[in-house]
Every structure is written in C-alpha cells, then in structure tokens.
C-alpha cells in the first residue's frame, strides 16, 4: 500500500469500523452477524454509538451501569457477564475477550477504581458502580500517560491483550508494589501476552512510575 493509498482511508479508520463497513467481505459479514446490538441506518452504515437498550431478550432484567462516567439504562439476560455487557450490549469493544475463564487478563476493567476481570463478573453485580474501560482512560489526542508509554516503548505486537495490559498497569500505579522490575512482573502476571511483549510492557510501566 502506497502513502497515497493510506491517505485515502477514512479519517477514523479503526479496525472495527473498517471490518463493519468493508463491503461484502467474509470477515465483515461474520462480524456483523455476531454483534446483536448494533443498529444500521438507511445507508447501511453501522451506528457505533452505545445503544440505550440491549437486544429484546425474554427474561431480561433492567440495570443501570455507569461506564466511563456515562449512565447506561439497559435490559440484559441475568447471565450476561460484565464483559459481554460492555462489548455486546454497550458496544464498547476496546475490552477484549480472551479465554473467558479468568486465565488471561484481556478483559481487565476497573470497578470503583480497582482492576477486575470482567469475564468472571455478572453485569448485574455492578448496578450503580463506577466502571472504567480503556475507552475511559484517554483518547488518541489526549492519551493517558500509560497509553503514551505503551506506544513509546512498543509494548505490544498484535495488540489483542493491550487494553487489558494497560488497564492493569494503570491500576497497579495505586497498588502496593516494589520499585524493581520483578515486583512489576509479579503484579502483572495476570495479563498474558502470547506475542511475548513482556519486557517492553514492564519498561512502559516503569517509565510511567518514574514520572508519577
């Protein structure tokens, strides 16, 4: 792809929006079919704004979730994990589903300022609590220092675990943790990176800790 081609891309070429709007590709149709809560306008454009309500499911119960400072009044199946609610119902897809069994850390979010695994929580347990996802940390123009440090230190490869790593790392700043790399590694052990970007992740975290 030439530089000119790159310039012709949409102004906000997020991977998700690209997949959702890229014509009749197999990946696009699979992804669209998988996301129940997305709404399309007349032109077929996907509305990525969080929906006010989830899908119309029998037995759904009402819940109010505060995510990134915004209240969402939802109706959800009681079985919905916090992770699935954030991704599928509220359509904030920065939080990732890895193992879905509390073994990888990709789904890490903050509840009342503390990091937790959203896959091992029911959304209903967090009615009224303060939830922060990676979307609530910063924006591309105004990144959280940890996001900027991950970028500066090249602390990722494929990027799938990155939002969980960053959410863990930000929470770690407020936890009891020794100054050495080994202490950081121990407290980050719940976040698996199959690309093996660990040394750069530790470097990014240490860079931020030195400046705090």
């Amino acid at each position: 792809m030439s530089n000119d081609d790159l310039k012709s891309q949409p102004a906000d070429p997020t991977r998700r929006k690209f997949l959702l709007t890229s014509g009749s590709g197999v990946a696009a149709s699979l992804v669209v079919g998988y996301v129940p809560a997305l709404a399309r306008d007349a032109a077929g454009e996907v509305d990525l704004a969080p929906t006010a309500e989830g899908p119309n499911i029998e037995g759904a119960v009402p819940i109010t979730l505060r995510i990134n400072g915004r209240e969402h009044s939802l109706r959800i199946d009681p079985r919905t994990t916090l992770l699935d609610c954030i991704r599928e119902t509220v359509t904030l897809t920065g939080t990732k589903k890895g193992c879905d069994h509390g073994q990888c850390g990709a789904c890490t979010v903050h509840v009342n300022g503390k990091r937790v695994l959203s896959c091992l929580n029911l959304a209903l347990m967090h009615d009224g609590e303060e939830i922060t996802t990676v979307e609530g940390l910063g924006t591309p123009d105004a990144m959280h220092p940890m996001q900027a440090a991950f970028l500066a230190c090249d602390a990722y490869q494929c990027g799938y675990c990155t939002s969980g790593q960053i959410m863990s790392a930000v929470a770690l700043l407020k936890e009891p943790c020794g100054t050495d790399d080994a202490s950081v590694k121990e407290l980050m052990s719940g976040n698996i990176c199959r690309c093996g970007a660990y040394s750069n992740i530790v470097a990014a975290i240490q860079q931020v800790r030195k400046n705090v």
Binding site: L117, L120, S189
Partner: peptide, 9 residues
C-alpha cells in the same frame, strides 16, 4: 495466589 485482578474480586 491467583492474580492481582482475581485477588481484588
């Protein structure tokens, strides 16, 4: 035991 996230839960 476990990880920092799980210990918080």
């Amino acid at each position: 035991g476990a990880s920092a996230q799980i210990r918080n839960m």
